[in-house]
Amino acid sequence: MHAPDDPNRYQEVLVSPMYLAGSNGTGEAGFAPVAHWPHHYLDEGPCQLLVTSPDQRIRIGWFGDDFELWRISAATEAASATRWTATFNHVTPAEIVAGLTTALAHDYAEADAYDSNGHFLAHPSPYWADAVRPLLDAGWSRSVPDSPGTIEILAPDGQAGAVVDRRAHGPDDEIVALWAGPPGWGTRAEAVFTAHTPSHLIAATTAVMAESAPVIRELHQIDRRIQHLVTTTPVASVMPTADTQVSRAPTPLDVRRTAVTQAVHRAARAPHTAADLRVMAARSRSAAVSENRSGTLAPTTTVPLPPRPSASRHSR
Rank of each mutant, 00 (worst) to 15 (best):
W128V: 04
A35W: 08
T241S: 07
E218Y: 12
A287V: 05
H265D: 09
S284C: 05
T273N: 05
E110S: 14
G45S: 04
N8S: 14
Y41S: 01
Q227R: 10
D157N: 08
A236T: 01
E152I: 09
V238Q: 02
P306A: 00
A131T: 07
L135D: 08
A177R: 15
A177K: 15
P4Q: 07
T87S: 08
H36D: 05
S147I: 14
W62L: 01
R308D: 00
H314E: 13
D43P: 05
S73A: 12
A29S: 10
T296E: 15
T231V: 13
D66V: 01
Q227F: 14
R57E: 03
V13G: 00
T76E: 11
T261V: 14
V51G: 03
S286F: 09
S294G: 02
R83S: 00
D112F: 15
A191E: 05
R269P: 02
S290W: 13
A263L: 01
D137Q: 11
T233N: 03
A98F: 05
V246M: 10
G186P: 13
R59D: 04
A3I: 10
R293E: 14
D107A: 12
R285A: 10
V34E: 12
L219R: 13
G149V: 11
S80H: 04
P214K: 11
N8W: 10
A160Y: 00
F63H: 01
N24F: 10
A311Q: 14
S212A: 12
G27N: 13
L154C: 15
V192H: 14
V34N: 09
H2L: 15
T101C: 06
G61Q: 06
P126Y: 04
W179R: 09
R217D: 02
R142L: 12
G27C: 14
D157K: 02
A35F: 04
M209V: 07
L20H: 04
G295I: 11
D243P: 01
T52F: 00
V144C: 09
R217S: 09
S247G: 08
T251I: 15
A79F: 11
V15G: 04
H40Y: 13
D165M: 03
W185C: 11
G118L: 07
Q245V: 13
A180H: 01
R167A: 12
L42E: 03
A29C: 15
A3P: 07
H272V: 06
R142N: 12
P126A: 03
D165K: 10
A236F: 07
R167L: 07
R308T: 08
S116C: 05
D6K: 00
R285L: 09
Y19E: 13
T251C: 11
V289D: 13
T232N: 04
S73Q: 06
R278K: 00
P124K: 10
A74H: 03
V192S: 12
L20A: 11
F120G: 03
C47I: 13
P46V: 11
T206E: 03
A242M: 06
